[in-house]
Computed example of a mutant assay.
Amino acid sequence: MNTITVKGVTLGSGSPKIIVPLVGKNEVELVAEAKHLLTIDCDLVEWRVDFFNQVQDFQEVAEMSKKIAEILSDKPLLFTFRTKQEGGEIPFSDEQYFCLYETVIKSGVIDLLDVELFMDGKLVQRTINLAHEKGIKIVMCNHDFDKTPDKAEIVSRLCSMQEKNADICKIAVMPQSSDDVLTLLEATNEMKSIHANRPIVTMSMGQLGMVSRMCGEVFGSAMTFGAAKKASAPGQVPVEELREILKTLAL
């Protein structure tokens, strides 16, 4: 599997890298939260911009990204607008989504960009091309908050992300049973062993799936999401505990 390195953080080898969400609703909260994250033992930061109350002012978002990036300094910044259908905070049209992304690619400062798999194919490719021209890495993702698809479907979606030229391929699913957690881990292992030529990130959400957030080095998941103050998805483990667990499970 090829690795991806962003600001000295290498994804795809060794223990999963810890990424924490930034979920402030305004500039004051975001600045305070970003400064707090400098004291946290994490590797990357994800700005969940759908929490930002000025998200519909795209230029303001781009300016805010510069302020956050300046505070975070050497920590890579992943920019994410999570759509409502995949668990986000507010509804956005496709036009708004891609216009926001284009503005931030051109006028903001980010290192990685989250793009959802099941969006308009042509607009996705245009966005990926624009981001790559600026040296921004693409994290393509899919979330299922209701269920865990079967193993073949999980693998198929991850392979589809590779085919679309994502730099990192990510899927998160909701388990209804321990068998579902095993399905996610088996799909991850198959992807790593047979199909993946770039980093993949997988997780089974909620309390039931929490184990999947900790054993990525064994099965092949390159990143894991930890909670600093507020979690952005169910089942995220506090960062301090997560780092110790990853050290214990390191191969």
Score class of each variant (00 low, 15 high):
188 T>D: 10
208 L>F: 04
234 P>H: 13
156 S>Y: 14
220 G>M: 13
57 D>M: 06
205 M>N: 12
92 F>N: 11
241 E>V: 14
169 C>N: 10
133 E>R: 08
153 E>Q: 13
179 D>N: 11
194 I>V: 15
152 A>Y: 06
144 D>F: 09
211 V>P: 05
47 W>N: 04
142 N>W: 11
230 K>H: 02
177 S>R: 02
181 V>A: 11
110 I>G: 00
142 N>T: 09
79 F>I: 04
107 S>P: 00
118 F>A: 01
39 T>P: 01
248 T>D: 07
220 G>K: 14
75 K>M: 11
28 V>I: 15
147 K>F: 09
68 I>C: 00
66 K>P: 00
49 V>M: 06
42 C>S: 13
18 I>E: 02
190 E>W: 13
218 V>S: 10
19 I>F: 11
102 E>W: 06
100 L>F: 11
235 G>D: 10
44 L>A: 08
77 L>Y: 07
38 L>Q: 06
172 A>I: 10
142 N>D: 09
28 V>F: 08
169 C>Y: 03
250 A>I: 09
103 T>K: 14
86 E>S: 01
36 H>V: 07
5 T>D: 06
202 T>F: 13
51 F>C: 07
170 K>M: 06
188 T>E: 12
12 G>N: 10
191 M>D: 04
126 R>H: 09
85 Q>I: 09
122 K>C: 09
205 M>K: 14
55 V>G: 00
136 I>E: 00
88 G>Y: 10
219 F>M: 10
156 S>I: 06
103 T>Y: 07
173 V>C: 14
113 L>E: 02
68 I>K: 02
178 S>T: 12
19 I>D: 04
3 T>A: 05
191 M>F: 14
102 E>M: 06
222 A>E: 06
151 K>C: 10
234 P>V: 15
103 T>H: 06
51 F>E: 04
214 M>N: 01
139 V>P: 00
209 G>H: 09
200 I>V: 08
219 F>E: 06
183 T>N: 12
177 S>Y: 01
77 L>E: 04
242 L>N: 02
18 I>G: 01
222 A>I: 07
192 K>G: 04
63 E>Y: 03
41 D>W: 04
3 T>L: 04
31 V>N: 05
54 Q>E: 10
242 L>P: 02
52 F>K: 03
205 M>Q: 13
164 K>N: 08
63 E>N: 07
134 K>Q: 08
227 A>F: 07
96 Q>C: 03
69 A>Q: 06
88 G>E: 07
99 C>S: 14
179 D>W: 02
217 E>G: 12
102 E>I: 05
127 T>I: 03
233 A>E: 03
153 E>A: 12
235 G>L: 12
169 C>I: 09
21 P>S: 06
87 G>N: 08
2 N>A: 11
196 A>H: 04
124 V>N: 05
24 G>N: 13
89 E>N: 11
197 N>K: 15
102 E>N: 12
250 A>C: 12
170 K>C: 02
177 S>W: 03
78 L>N: 01
127 T>D: 05
165 N>C: 08
199 P>W: 08
48 R>Y: 02
240 E>S: 15
83 T>K: 12
156 S>N: 14
204 S>D: 14
102 E>Y: 04
127 T>N: 01
45 V>H: 05
